[in-house]
Simulated scan of single mutants.
Amino acid sequence: MALIKSVRGFTPQIGENTFLADNATIIGDVIIGNNCSLWFNAVLRGDVNSIRIGNRVNIQDGSVIHTLYEKSVTEIGDDVSIGHNVVIHGAKIEDGALIGMGAIILDHAVIGEGSIIAAGAVVLSNTIVEPGSIYAGVPAKFVKKVDTEQSKEMNQKIARNYLMYSEWYKEANK
């Protein structure tokens, strides 16, 4: 069973039909939307500031989401896919974005709608990624524009797939 822990008077709120892997950890001021999935060893640590997760978001294995005390919050829109071992620290991820495996997104960065952050990229603090952009590298730099509708469609498909995967685990526990 996932670890859901209150801290400083905040208790995580988890939306309907959201899958939490057995060892996912959700702490403090965290609100998660509907039809999301948090996979094995994912940690959402809302102990020092708020974390807000939209609908149909998948946060894959080993990812960590945190903030800066009194300085940054983390906001993640709808239909966002966060790959394995991602760190998001006090950033805003807009609807339909894809964050590749092992990427790091630092405080006050904004990842625009339908954007793609490549695997292993490091998005520095205060970076603004324009909607429909691909960023890659360390530090992450603009690579090219993508069709926003096409990338949103792709990310919605990934989000639907992760809902399907989570159903496998729910069925296995019946």
Rank of each mutant, 00 (worst) to 15 (best):
P139V: 08
S63F: 01
Y165R: 13
L68F: 00
E70A: 10
A103N: 12
I76A: 00
N55A: 03
S166F: 07
V146K: 13
M1C: 08
T74Q: 02
H108M: 05
T148V: 15
I88C: 02
F10V: 01
I65C: 04
K145D: 15
V64N: 03
G33R: 06
A136P: 03
I116T: 10
A91Y: 00
A172N: 02
G83T: 12
K144N: 11
R56G: 04
G96F: 08
K71F: 04
A21M: 06
L44N: 00
T25G: 03
S115V: 07
A97I: 10
R45G: 06
D79N: 15
Y162C: 03
A91T: 00
G46Q: 08
M101F: 14
E94D: 14
D61K: 09
A109I: 02
P131W: 06
A24P: 09
I14E: 04
A119K: 02
K141D: 09
K71Q: 14
A24K: 07
N17E: 12
A21G: 04
S133C: 15
A119I: 02
K152I: 14
A172M: 04
V122D: 00
E153F: 11
G54S: 04
I99K: 10
S115G: 09
T127E: 14
S115M: 08
S6P: 07
I51N: 00
